[in-house]
Design a protein around this nucleic acid. Structure first.
Length: 688
DNA sequence: ATAGGGTTAG
């Protein structure tokens, strides 16, 4: 099937034919090997290979190849080689290289060429440098629709909509008629800024100018209306289109998903298949991504398998869409598989993918792997930094989170609102009160980022966890925004830890108003009463819960060993190893007693006697899962347990004891954070 | 040779 590699040193004409053969069959690796071996590389081979790298999604390689051509080729790049390099550079979005290439074009005297000029404009636009695009445009002796459109597109992609519209006006004044591409570019301004009215105006403009039946324009309109949350308009345009291609269908798929209507999306997808629309990779990706966004993880995975049955190979977009699914499943196994695939496909240069991997590993409990990936990243954007900061905070490494926060700024990155969430969250989990205060106040004064409700809640958390409950309460009262459930919830949780009944009641009453259905708040308040021996108040709360039909969310823990996930609820006896598990836990409890570690019975809801309480504690789901993990270690040295609620104090003590006496590293992810038990301590320093 | 699908907080 494939052309055999020719012997080294073939005349260049023949070598080129073989090179083309490899490239046509998409075999970049063989093409490159042939190219590297060949003695007579002509300009055409260089150009072909650069374009091929760009087309296959590895533009950086294309740019490198161009640099190599200049350095060692002994050949002078012609117009087509430059065009290929400019395209590669645009796809790589490398502004530094873009400027160099611009210089080369001028050096070779090609800046007046229409094709080259347009390519330069496009390149600068993709590098998010519209001023560069504009200066190329202004220097061109002749421009066409493509030049105008590309400048407008450059402004659009940098969110400079004012200038984009100004250019559109100038274009019309100059007598140049916008074409369908121009229009669809301008539509995306409305999509991004959600300006429905502007979109409607442009829609009218399109109709007046005879673009009503244009497939490009209509697809753009579908997308624009959908993004402006006007799904009905989007649908009616889609339905009235005289012709539709895969892109129009894909737009409508995405529109349905973003409207939360998965059923409709699947209906459309099946209609595509039935009507013989050529499904492409983007169609599958839209389906997978849409399912993940709407929490339909299983369906997303099924689609991933099915698309491969149909002969489609997952690309970077597929991987970036499926990784959040692995993350939300907390499936380290699936995540690792995707990591391996990404590595083999050379996707690890892609920041979106590496950032997703960072998050996947940290949410699955493997922070070390996140750190490895992060330190291997050659480029880091704001999202990558934010994710790494947050990962450290989640795992209780507030000091590291703050170190990253400062390192990020040293590297010239400006923190945004998400950055501050991560940093503050790190402060609250690691008891860094002074640092938290400083950061919170610096937000508006030094960085011009207005703290939103979540930042405020996080700050309440910082104060409450440190036991500064009065200050936390005052902070809430002085908030310029209406305190959310998050703020009161943080205070209430602090009141439970520090046994403050008065403030606890205040916080709880606010929460009962804001979210009357949330059982957690009732349970917390009841726990506070129990700890203070206020049994009557505690039972009143339980009565209110009964009357309102609110049930405590059952605690549930799970652990993965080999290929299965084992789930445990409180008092679970369904497992084959049940007897062993309870026996193990009784032994541990006895050993702890001998060492003078007493059971922490504060978190038992019922007013029962002490022995019963201890019995109840012994059957908590997280203990069962940990015991199961230890019994099934099979020579392993670490276990990972997940829990849907917060870990209880007694379980925390017990698991710490188990980790120490068995020399095992135990990770427990509860509803708030990660706990890493190793030797005789937990990464949370008993502070959560 | 200029449309479409992707990553972070709660």
């Amino acid at each position: 099937m494939l052309p055999k590699p020719p012997p080294v040193g073939l005349p260049s004409r023949l070598g080129l034919r073989f090179l083309k053969g490899f490239l046509d069959s998409g075999d970049l690796q063989h093409a490159r090997a042939l190219f590297d071996e060949s003695r007579h590389r002509d300009l055409r081979s260089w150009t072909l290979l650069i374009s091929a790298y760009t087309k296959q999604g590895f533009p950086m390689e294309g740019v490198k190849l161009y640099t190599q051509l200049l350095r060692e080729g002994g050949l002078k790049p012609d117009k087509f080689a430059l065009l290929a390099a400019v395209k590669a550079c645009g796809a790589a979005a490398d502004l530094g290289k873009a400027r160099e290439l611009h210089g080369d074009v001028v050096g070779f005297g090609l800046q007046a060429d229409l094709l080259v000029g347009n390519a330069l404009i496009d390149m600068y636009g993709k590098c998010r440098f519209p001023d560069g695009a504009r200066s190329v445009f202004d220097g061109m002796p002749h421009v066409d629709v493509i030049s105008w459109t590309s400048v407008i597109a450059a402004y659009v992609s940098s969110n400079r909509s004012g200038e984009a519209f100004a250019m559109l006006r100038e274009m019309r004044i100059s007598g140049m008629r916008p074409n369908s591409v121009t229009l669809s570019k301008v539509f995306s301004i409305c999509s991004d800024t959600k300006s429905l009215n502007l979109g409607r105006e442009l829609h009218c403009f399109a109709v007046r100018n005879g673009f009503e039946d244009n497939i490009f324009v209509c697809s753009g309109l579908v997308d624009m209306y959908a993004k402006c949350s006007s799904i009905h308009q989007a649908r009616s345009i889609f339905d009235s289109m005289p012709r539709r291609d895969a892109v129009s269908w894909n737009m409508m798929l995405a529109a349905s998903f973003s409207n939360g209507d998965c059923e409709e999306a699947f209906k459309l997808f099946h209609r595509m298949e039935a009507e013989g629309v050529a499904l492409n990779l983007a169609s599958w990706n839209s389906m997978i991504c849409g399912c993940v966004e709407n929490g339909r993880i299983k369906q997303a995975l099924t689609l991933l398998a099915r698309m491969q049955d149909f002969g489609f190979k997952p690309n970077k977009i597929t991987i970036a869409s499926i990784l959040p699914a692995c993350t939300s499943l907390e499936s380290l196994r699936a995540g690792k598989e995707v990591h391996g695939y990404s590595f083999r496909q050379c996707f690890m240069e892609d920041m979106v993918i590496t950032t997703s991997l960072l998050l996947m590993y940290s949410k699955c409990g493997n922070l070390d792997m996140s750190r490895k990936i992060f330190s291997a990243m050659s480029n880091r954007d704001i999202v990558a930094w934010n994710t790494m900061i947050l990962a450290n905070s989640m795992h209780g490494y507030g000091g590291e989170a703050l170190a990253l926060f400062h390192e990020m700024q040293k590297s010239g990155m400006r923190p945004n609102s998400v950055t501050f969430m991560g940093a503050l969250c790190g402060c609250s989990h690691s008891n860094l009160v002074e640092e938290g205060r400083k950061i919170f106040h610096s937000m508006s004064s030094d960085y011009g980022v207005m703290p939103d409700a979540d930042h405020h809640s996080c700050m309440v958390d910082v104060l409450s966890r440190a036991g500064l409950l009065t200050e936390a309460y005052e902070f809430i009262q002085k908030m310029p925004l209406k305190p959310t459930a998050g703020a009161w919830g943080a205070l209430l949780a602090g009141c439970r830890v520090y046994k403050n009944v008065e403030l606890g009641k205040i916080a709880a009453n606010h929460l009962f108003e804001i979210e009357p259905e949330n059982p957690g708040n009732y349970v917390l308040l009841s726990n506070i009463f129990v700890a203070a021996n206020l049994w009557d108040d505690a039972s009143k709360i339980r009565k209110i819960m009964r009357d309102r039909g609110i049930a405590k969310e059952p605690g549930c823990s799970w652990i993965q060993t080999k290929n299965r996930i084992y789930t445990f609820v409180k008092g679970d006896k369904r497992h084959a190893q049940s007897d062993q598990i309870y026996g193990f836990l009784r032994e541990v409890a006895e050993k702890m007693r001998l060492e003078g570690i007493l059971p922490d019975t504060d978190s038992v809801l019922q007013d029962v006697d002490k022995e019963e309480k201890e019995e109840l504690l012994c059957s908590h789901s997280e203990k069962l899962a940990v015991a199961f993990g230890i019994l099934n270690l099979n020579g392993g040295s670490s276990i990972r347990v997940f829990k849907n609620l917060r870990i209880c104090g007694d379980c925390h003590n017990t698991i710490k004891f188990i980790a120490m006496s068995f020399g095992v590293r135990i990770t427990v992810r509860d509803s708030l954070r990660f706990h890493h038990f190793q030797d005789e301590s937990c990464s949370c320093h008993d502070f959560w």
